[in-house]
Simulated scan of single mutants.
Amino acid sequence: MILGISFLDFLKKSKEAKMQSGKTRLKQFIEILNLRKGPGKLSGREYYDYRLFEKRFSSKQQKTFAGTWIRNDVWIFQDPQWCGVGSDKLLSYLVLDALGLPIAPVKAIYGAQRYYPNAEILKSPEDLLTFLRNKENYPFFSKPSAGAFGRNTCYAKSYDESSDSILTTNGKNIRVEDFSSIKLPNELGGFLFQEIIKPHPDLSNCIGERVATARIITMRTENGVRIHRAAFRIPVGNNITDNFNLGSGGNGFSDIDIETGRLGKMHVGLGLSLRALTEHPDTKQSVEGFHLPHWEQVLAVIKQGQESLFGLPAIGWDIAFTETGPVIVEFNTNPGYALLQATGRGFLDEEFRKCFPADPAALRKRYPHIEIGIPSGRKR
């Protein structure tokens, strides 16, 4: 596993890669070895995830791809005093709301001794049961304040009194007693209940009724805020969230043309299973060429956010598109970049390195708070 892939997986994937590209197993192995030692420290699995066996990639292009192993080092320039703001959703909403940036209003908080303006504070299990059995509180979207990857989320449509159940958008009914018995670690900062974000009608017609978000990376440069990458996550099937999850959950994605806000081809899967679709599986509508609503306003919102959060030189924004304008679902201080590299464009390109040099001395000079020399995998 020193190369980040088991021998059996290498045999299986290299065989398929040879069939697709004609590149020999020996050549693939040599490239994996070189990239593991290279600036992106890619694993063998990531070599296949990003289809770097394809002959369209030069050695220089391959080295612009970043692996998970160096994720902490990629974002080392982030001021650790500011990182907690993005990790805690409730805290981030307070900051964004104070800045006048659009968010989904918080209806209630449960499971933590916290306060949020105009939100109902549910202090006990009995308070939670009362909240869940009140039909006026529906619909809502619930999630942990410090959760990730769409875990422990619920899109609740309504309450059914006869069965004492919560009706969800994916057709599943959850008994109120079962919902209220969910136990979350204290460090997750409680459970949030938010008002529903309704997608723009044009977007709903294209990809369905669920909320889909754009992941957009902004960087603060000497010449102002720059948009580095943008991709659009597309829910498919019974998924209630649009999480990518390395292509394993069935959701799709498209690249976004930053200048125009138009979507590229829709893809599903990752690596050897990556495939392009001509239409959304549920709506049968074409995704390619769709113009995301209020795109100019989206750019203005995230640029204002990047300028305001000065301790974070780069931010990953998750933006939803509604009829009245964009809504910030969350922002990330250590965002993953697998989605942004999935269709063949490395994250650590020349433009990125102009802002954030790989050389530790140059990086420290620009960002004095950085603790240079801490190895990959460190804990802040």
Rank of each mutant, 00 (worst) to 15 (best):
H228E: 04
Q285F: 11
A300F: 13
E195K: 10
R366T: 15
R36L: 07
H228S: 10
E351S: 09
H294S: 14
M219Q: 02
Y110C: 01
Q304D: 08
E307F: 14
D97G: 12
R380L: 12
K18A: 06
I256S: 05
G147A: 12
R45Q: 09
G249N: 06
R378E: 09
E259I: 09
R210L: 14
I2C: 10
L33G: 11
N170K: 13
I121W: 01
N72I: 07
T283K: 03
G261D: 03
L272C: 06
K15N: 15
L33Q: 10
I207R: 14
R345G: 09
F149V: 07
R51I: 08
C154H: 06
G264Y: 15
S273W: 02
L246R: 14
E288W: 14
D318A: 04
A104D: 01
L348T: 14
K354C: 08
P185D: 01
D359H: 07
N205L: 11
K18T: 12
W295R: 00
G190D: 07
I76L: 02
I196D: 01
K13F: 15
I166V: 08
G86Y: 02
I70Q: 07
A17D: 03
F191K: 00
N332V: 13
T153E: 01
L94P: 09
G40R: 02
A314K: 15
S273M: 05
S142N: 07
I319F: 00
G325Q: 07
A276T: 14
N118F: 15
P139I: 00
L309Q: 05
S58W: 13
V329P: 14
D164E: 14
G67T: 04
D49S: 04
G84N: 02
D79H: 01
P235V: 09
D242Q: 07
R262A: 12
F253G: 06
K89H: 06
I174W: 13
G147V: 02
D127F: 01
I2H: 08
P326I: 07
H200G: 07
G344A: 11
R380D: 12
K135V: 10
R229I: 00
C83P: 14
D88Y: 01
I258Y: 03
T333W: 15
I328W: 05
T221C: 13
G311A: 02
F191N: 00
V327H: 10
P375I: 07
W295V: 06
F331K: 02
Q297Y: 12
D257K: 08
P80S: 08
F10V: 02
G305I: 00
G346F: 02
G311S: 05
P105I: 05
I370C: 07
S376W: 11
W69Q: 10
S286G: 10
V176N: 03
K284W: 06
S162V: 09
Q285A: 12
W82V: 11
R51K: 13
G147R: 03
K143Y: 01
P125Y: 05
E351K: 06
E136W: 15
P125D: 04
G261H: 02
T241M: 08
P281F: 05
Q306R: 11
Y367D: 06
K157D: 08
P185C: 00
R56E: 13
K379S: 11
A338G: 14
D282L: 00
E136V: 06
K365A: 09
